[in-house]
Design a protein around this nucleic acid. Structure first.
Ligand SMILES: [Mn+2]
Ligand SMILES: [Mn+2]
Ligand SMILES: [Zn+2]
Ligand SMILES: [Zn+2]
Lengths: 157, 157
DNA sequence: CAAATTGATGATAATCATTTTCAGATAATA
DNA sequence: TATTATCTGAAAATGATTATCATCAATTTG
């Protein structure tokens, strides 16, 4: 944890930005909720618990800054809000997401999986890939089992 | 063109929606600008040219309706607006996009390319894929050539 | 046919996420 | 220390989208 904050601190300094207390508190919240996909408002409420005087605008500014530095990725699942997702340390590309259309759960895939596809895109379209966004929409494991159970229930009622 | 409108008309009717003049005008604008990625406001301004009395709210309502019917896909490239993209006729999945980080151009890929990846996701994650969103961020062919030209220019100046 | 119901529309107001403004703090620099 | 640039919180502004509501047109009912 401290190690990752140090890392981010150095990244900020390398562009002559400072790790202010507000920024540090924000980064800590992101690290402590790494598996979630928090909106700016979500982050704001969590940061307020440890730094009650922080303003919402500062949270937005910090998230924007971390986005530029590629510490976080800004992502949009189609509800009206942007969500901020910590990039795994050393990851070249953004990770993928599985969004369940039944229950709304979001699962992550760390594996790249797109190596071959990117080769095709570079070769066939002459497009130099720097990053990607991939989201699958479908039915998660849990909802599949529930659907099976429901239909079984139906057929013997 | 008329053929595709007929198709959409039937799709609407099958859910007991009507193809009103406003809805038809909106669909026509989408068909006539198939390669673009229009925002609701964009669509509104274009529809106004052929049906000046239409209201913005109706355009939003129509786009929402077409979204439900999977006639269009609502997409978000990270600027603050939703864009609406006609789905190719008979296409099972949404097509992919190449967004240039230099010039902002957006290119489309109709080929699916994700068959293998989806097999892995279904097999390894037990996630039943229904649709996907894939966007590559990088440098388009045009900007690559310009970059080469610029650096060549630099080295012999 | 006349009356009643329904669905769709346009104008407007309301909502809500995000950005901007600005005056005051804080930290870096000379 | 004086100067300068950076950062901050509060509040106002912005801009996209949604909700409201009175009206209209088509459809159904009696
Ligand atoms: Mn994620
Ligand atoms: Mn497209
Ligand atoms: Zn689910
Ligand atoms: Zn380009």
């Amino acid at each position: 944890m401290e190690h990752r904050i140090d890392r981010i601190k150095k990244q900020l300094h390398s562009q002559s930005y400072k790790l202010t207390p507000q920024r540090e508190a924000t980064v800590r919240v992101l690290l402590e909720n790494e598996t979630d996909h928090l909106s700016a408002e979500d982050v704001y409420l969590l940061v307020k618990e440890k730094a009650p005087e922080i303003g919402l605008a500062t949270v937005y500014r910090t998230l924007e800054l971390l986005s530029e530095l590629k510490v976080v990725d800004k992502i949009n699942f189609g509800d009206g809000v942007s969500r901020y997702d910590l990039r795994k340390e050393g990851a070249e590309h953004f990770h993928h997401h599985l969004v369940c259309i039944e229950c709304g759960s979001v699962e992550e895939i760390e594996e790249d999986l797109l190596g071959d596809v990117e080769k095709i895109v570079e070769g066939q379209w002459g497009f130099q890939v720097k990053d990607h966004r991939l989201t699958f929409h479908g039915v998660c494991r849990v909802c599949q089992t529930q659907a099976v159970a429901a239909s079984a229930n139906e057929s013997n009622s």
